[in-house]
């Protein structure tokens, strides 16, 4: 028998598999959620050009006006100007319309930053915890401990450790989110770690860090994108809750939570203070969650069972 008689294996032409991202863009909930989120970002970014005034300027003579009221106020030069408050004013005479639009900036910024930080932190901790056996029980007990404290309580106590400010709020929301990311990453690592291709990498002498980066980390990307959107939605909510409770960013900074907090006392008489920021908050969180659900269904169908 010679080499010629061996059936020469041919390399088949493979059909190019459709990339996950392309499929995601055809999913209706990704499209709808994505459009709404983009709209919110655009509203926040374009706030100065959408007929707003300074969101922090108070006007003692125009307090608690219902939507559509025209109020006379003085500009910087002392001239009287007529101003229409589309969504009314709050109990200090600040324009609710302006505060809601500017509030979108803070809320979305907090949501995205918390998502990025907690994914990044959770990814690193989870990779090492899942791969290095002796580290795993120690890290996981710490994470269990963190998860045992209600997230809001933990955030409140963390904020009270620092000077109130947006950085403190972001940190305070990020830390309670990290354990969930760690658990998710770790569960992926635990199953991928046993794959023969990881063992093959060990036998060809690939250093541990390279194995983590090259062979294990890519498997966590899809679930992390999905988890990131859910964290973003929950961070926007938690930020609003913290502001509403008066432990978030300082009350003059326009965030949806702060606008609602300011309107809390006069809610029965002037519901617009809470209604409009509440609608924005609800729509944004719904949109981000829809985006996340759609991404999960297209990028990582198995994750649906794990979460």
């Amino acid at each position: 028998m010679t080499a010629d008689s061996l059936p020469q294996p041919t390399v088949p032409r493979a059909r190019k598999p459709q990339s996950g991202m392309m499929r995601a863009f055809r999913n209706p909930s990704v499209v709808i959620g994505g459009i709404v989120v983009l709209l919110m970002i655009a509203l926040g970014a374009a706030a100065p050009w959408l007929g707003t005034m300074s969101p922090t300027e108070i006007n003692p003579s125009g307090r608690n006006k219902p939507p559509g009221t025209i109020v006379t106020r003085r500009d910087d030069d002392g001239n009287k100007v007529q101003v229409m408050h589309r969504l009314g004013t709050d109990l200090l005479g600040r324009d609710v319309y302006s505060r809601v639009l500017y509030g979108a900036r803070i809320s979305l910024f907090v949501g995205v930053t918390v998502a990025v930080f907690s994914i990044f932190g959770g990814l690193i901790i989870g990779l090492f915890s899942g791969y290095i056996r002796w580290l795993d029980p120690i890290v996981m007990r710490v994470m269990d401990g963190l998860m045992a404290i209600p997230a809001i309580l933990l955030a409140i106590s963390l904020v009270s450790l620092f000077r109130a400010g947006i950085g403190a709020v972001i940190l305070a929301i990020t830390i309670p989110e990290i354990p969930r990311v760690v658990r998710l990453v770790r569960s992926v690592v635990l199953s991928v770690r046993e794959e023969p291709y990881v063992e093959a990498a060990i036998t060809v002498g690939t250093p541990t860090l390279k194995i983590l980066w090259r062979h294990i980390m890519p498997n966590t990307i899809a679930p992390m994108i999905v988890q990131g959107t859910f964290i973003c939605a929950s961070a926007i909510l938690v930020e609003a809750i913290l502001s509403f409770l008066g432990v978030g960013v300082p009350p003059d900074v326009p965030t949806w939570g702060n606008v609602m907090a300011a309107g809390r006392d006069v809610f029965y008489l002037f519901p617009h203070n809470i209604f409009y920021p509440g609608v924005m908050l609800a729509v944004t969180v719904l949109a981000v969650n829809m985006l996340g659900d759609g991404l999960r269904d297209t990028l990582d169908p198995k994750l649906a069972k794990r979460l």
Binding site: E195, P196, Y197, E199, A200, I202, T203, V204, G205
Partner: peptide
């Protein structure tokens, strides 16, 4: 490490 190499059972996962 390089002296000992291994071929695994499952060609779809190795």
């Amino acid at each position: 490490r390089r002296r000992v190499q291994i071929v695994f059972q499952d060609p779809y996962r190795s």
